[in-house]
Write a protein that binds this DNA or RNA. Structure first.
Lengths: 195, 195
DNA sequence: ATTTATATGTAGTGATCGCTACATAAGTAG
DNA sequence: CTACTTATGTAGCGATCACTACATATAAAT
């Protein structure tokens, strides 16, 4: 059939730029004007390609989630639970203070000034954080089954401890904490390990 | 001199109601309309009594900070550093999930959808979180001086660990974590203690 | 009673929000 | 070429934002 005028920008590239804006300013803090400027396109192009602001956020969030899901899997593939959790925490310290990206984690900073009507954004971010915690929990369950963790260890509680730390590290990073500060937090946090 | 028409509302009571709104929605997420409705006053009364939205937030934040500073001091007055930190973490688990208030901590949730022009709000909240961390650090320094902590303990790093946990717990609470969940995190967190 | 000072209620300011109508440009299909 | 489809650029929509002008109300001071 007829194919119409081709779009003049790369969708994924534009999405990456939108992600940067959402990451730095949060969902509500990022205006369409901020986004179109960063993406190098006009509002009608944005709406034609991505739907609306909420759908754009969802797509940017999925892209972000893809990257971080891979990093998480890599960290969790360490041979022991102890090494896996240490890898998660130290990767967090590193990534959350990466100067090439906004400080902190989109899962935390994205909440922004969400009024009531942005509850779906809150739900999206809650779900992503829960996904992350669940993957850690699964790894710990496996470790317990393999005898890598004692029988009385509680994977769910441990996973929540790790998730709480990474989320707190995001707040710390957004507040100006240095990479070294967060590395030290990660080191301290690992002292709970029975080994 | 002449005293003029007296105001028809209690300033502190109105401030408390504004605090609830900021707490639940964040600085940017709370509209003047939300605030005036909750405070039971009209916009001109709000501006006459509190200046503007930013100054209102600052006053609400100070009020919140007063309450939490007292609670913190009480927790830190425990005889040993270990008990003091445990008290901080368990108080966080309790307070952050208090059903009478919005979930989470204003110091974290207040960041809301802060656009660039709300950087002063970000600074205010960063400063309050830093205050909290510093008080914990002071307590730990005292403990080390008293021999309650080993010579090689690092009060600053420990204080940052505790602050990171409480901030992460705020994110967890805002995401729906239960009091029991957070209590278990606090228990796990205390396992790093050398004792 | 008059003056002075502060608070209130109504109503609306300009600016910005997310979003879109509309005409035009740029491609394919026949 | 004409017909059709899709993207772009301009320009602006109604709604909401933080905030305020203005007239009026209510107190104390003289």
């Amino acid at each position: 059939m007829a194919a119409g005028r081709p779009r003049t920008f790369c969708k994924n590239e534009a999405l990456d730029r939108a992600l940067q804006v959402f990451w730095r300013k949060g969902f509500e803090g990022a205006s369409i004007c901020d986004l179109t400027e960063a993406m190098g396109i006009s509002p009608p192009s944005l709406y034609a390609a991505f739907g609306n602001k909420e759908q754009l956020f969802r797509q940017a969030l999925d892209r972000y989630a893809g990257v971080h899901s891979e990093r998480r899997k890599e960290a969790l593939s360490a041979p022991t639970a102890r090494e896996a959790v240490a890898a998660i925490l130290h990767a967090a310290a590193r990534n959350l203070t990466d100067t090439a990206s906004p400080a902190g984690c989109l899962y935390v900073q994205g909440i922004a000034g969400a009024g009531e009507h942005a509850s779906c954004v809150r739900d999206m971010l809650n779900a992503k954080r829960a996904d992350s915690e669940r993957e850690i929990c699964e790894r710990l369950k496996r470790a317990r089954a393999e005898g890598d963790l004692p029988e009385d260890a509680e994977p769910a509680a441990l996973a929540r401890y790790v998730a709480t730390l990474t989320q707190g590290m995001s707040v710390q990073a957004a507040g100006g904490a240095s990479r070294e500060d967060l590395e030290r937090v990660a080191d301290l946090a690992m002292r709970i390990w029975p080994s």
